[in-house]
Every structure is written in C-alpha cells, then in structure tokens.
C-alpha cells in the first residue's frame, strides 16, 4: 500500500499554534492512500457527511483503517484532493436551479485539468459522486468549452461518440454476435406468444 503525501498535504505545523488540524485518511479502489485536511474535506458534501457520521478522533484517524472510496481510482482521487486542498475554506456555491451561471475557470483549476479526456471524465464523475459543487462546475465548463466552434465530426472525436451510422452498425453487430441458440429460443418464444400459447416453460 502506498501513501501519497503532498501536494495533498501542504501543512505548516508551526503555523497552527492553538488547535492541531486533523487529517483524514482515504483509500482509492487501487489501494492508494491520501491524507486530507478536515477543512478540505468540507468541499465535498459526501465526504463531509461521512466523516461527521463516523465521529473519528485524532487517534481513530491514525489507528483505524483508511476510509475506502471504492469506485474512484488513485489518479483521479489525487486530483480531487489536490483541488479540495487548494480551495479549502472557500464558500460552496449554492445551486438554486436558476439560470446557468457564468463559470470562470481559475488558473490553478485550468492547470489541474490539463489532462487527457478520459481522466477528465473520471474527474467529473468523481466530483459528482463526492458532491463537490465547484469542482463539478469548472470541470463541466472545461468539457463545455471543448465543444466551441467544432463540427459534428470533430465533436465525435473529442467526446468519443459514435455517429448514428456507427451506432446502428454496432447494434447490428451485437445482435449478430448473440448466441445462435439464445436467438432461436427467443424467436420460438416470440412465435408462441404470437400464437397465443401458454407459458413457454
């Protein structure tokens, strides 16, 4: 098991004279461990609720196993926690369902999201899953910006989407690849249904 330290942990202990900050330990689905400050965790509604419900003490955090986040890999989780640490203490935007707001991507976020599309989509998925409102906002904005001024063919390449023809062809291929016996059974079932017969079995 590897422990990923900074940049997620960027703490100057001397600068905290009164109360020692608590750092929670999280583990990704590929067994990478991260230490994340309490304040950074507040950016994620899901994790914040989770740690509140667990009610860990400083000792618990060190002695108990790291909190497992089973459906996010280490590479994505590292980005998520880097973002949370950078934006810790910032107000969380409230989504009141009104008209879409203008989203600016800060320089730090732009650099963080300078990644391949696959990882970007995983980051979006993680931000949604962990309910990190502003990270979801900026990452969605980044994907939205990719669409600017592109033709449908270019957009298919960017978003890895099939054209209507490719989609149809894939469906046909999938049907043809079906087990012939299963198809036979299915056809027989449909035929009996048409004839108004009783249960197939």
């Amino acid at each position: 098991m590897s422990v990923e330290n900074a940049p997620v942990v960027d703490v100057d202990e001397a600068a905290i004279p009164v109360e020692k900050k608590m750092y929670y330990r999280f583990e990704s689905n590929d067994k990478k461990e991260f230490r994340v400050s309490e304040l950074a965790i507040q950016q994620s509604e899901t994790l914040n609720r989770l740690v509140e419900a667990m009610g860990y003490t400083s000792e618990d955090v060190e002695n108990k196993p790291a909190i497992a986040i089973e459906n996010i890999d280490g590479k994505t989780l590292k980005l998520v926690f880097q973002w949370c640490e950078h934006h810790k203490g910032e107000a969380i935007p409230v989504d009141d369902g009104s008209v879409p707001k203008i989203v600016e991507i800060p320089e730090f976020d732009a650099k963080l999201m300078d990644i391949d599309n696959g990882l970007l989509f995983k980051l979006i998925w993680a931000a949604d899953y962990l309910n990190i409102v502003q990270l979801l906002n900026v990452s969605c904005k980044k994907v939205a910006n990719m669409a600017q001024g592109k033709t449908p063919a270019q957009l298919r390449r960017v978003y890895l989407l099939p054209s209507d023809e490719e989609d149809e062809a894939a469906k046909r291929a999938a049907q043809e690849a079906q087990d012939p016996r299963a198809r036979e059974v299915e056809e027989e079932f449909e035929e009996r249904k048409r004839q108004g017969g009783n249960s197939f079995f």
Partner: peptide
C-alpha cells in the same frame, strides 16, 4: 466516458455550451 456520464452531469455540461454549439451537438449522435 462522456457517453456514460450521469444525466445530471450531462445537463450541467450542455447548459454551459453556447446555444449554437449545443445545436451542433445535436448532430453528433
């Protein structure tokens, strides 16, 4: 991938795409 993002996320993305590009998106798939 883009195609298996949850609908709520997809909504957030397309709401941030300007209308003309959103119109072009309709021709993608």
């Amino acid at each position: 991938e883009f195609s298996n993002l949850p609908d709520g996320v997809l909504s957030q993305i397309v709401d941030k795409v300007n209308p003309v590009d959103r119109f072009v998106l309709q021709k993608v798939s």
